[in-house]
Amino acid sequence: MAEGAIHDLKYKRYTGGRGNPWLRALVVARWAMVLQLRQRWVKVLFGLGIIWATVSILKLAMLSLFGNSGLGSAASGLLANLDREVGITAIEAQQGPTFLLVLACGAPALAADLNAGAFQFHFARPIGVGQYLLGRLLGSAGWSLVLSYGTFAVLMSVRLVLGGEALTVLKTAALSAGPLGLRVLAMTAVALGLSSLTRRKGLAQAMFAGLVAGSWVLLFGVARVAHKPWLEALHVTGSAEALGDMLVLHRRFGGWYDAVPAVACALWLGLGLGVAAWRLSRAEVVRG
């Protein structure tokens, strides 16, 4: 080869592997989260979540320190249930910020895709409806899950450091971790289902907010008036929270009503994803 000569290296064909199609769901989720982080509102809400988490952590730290100091009879009663309360706090600590994050990230997700022709982009590639939807679910719930589990991890760590019994804290963590994730996922699935019904992001967000808030007012109101607390467990987020109460606090509705939280949670997840899958299966990739 002569020194300084320019040689055309020609186009090189790709000869590597293509990976498992289900891993492409993670690609969809990762890129969705990267794009969400560019939105100012997502950053603001995430910051709000961190402040919210800090307040919960400080509250827990003060209770632990107060209880450990042995001051007052109230403190000892509180301390007896503190480990359980930590579990419930972990599940419910980010109720507000995660709802707002799902409202900002999940509710407009499929409407925006529909508007931009993103279904054509995706489904002309080797990715199926199931993989795409799983990716969208994880992507839309991603920052809410990071916030929820981040707060959860810090709360459990603080409790451990400030006098919690390791085995009890770990048991509480194991019992509350599932409902924590289910709460976010059920909410996101419903948001995606509603989002798939329209091209207008604002309308999708309004439908989601209306459903969550409207059903909360209705179910919680009727539950109080009719003295049927299991009705609260029918709510989108209330179902996972009731499941957490059952697992961590051993709260029971009695009889077959004990199955309501788990069934309701599964129904919301299935309904949201089912509607979205039905709409996606009808997405026009080749128009004409």
């Binding site: 990976g19 492409r24 690609v27 794009l35 931009a116 054509q120 995706h122």
Partner: peptide, 26 residues
């Protein structure tokens, strides 16, 4: 496709890289 088929807020580099990853490329 004949119609626009993009993702909101993506640059051309990101769009193409995303498309390649969806096709299974590292």
């Amino acid at each position: 496709p004949e119609d626009d088929a993009f993702l909101p807020d993506m640059t051309a580099v990101e769009l193409c890289a995303y498309g390649a990853e969806l096709a299974g490329l590292p």
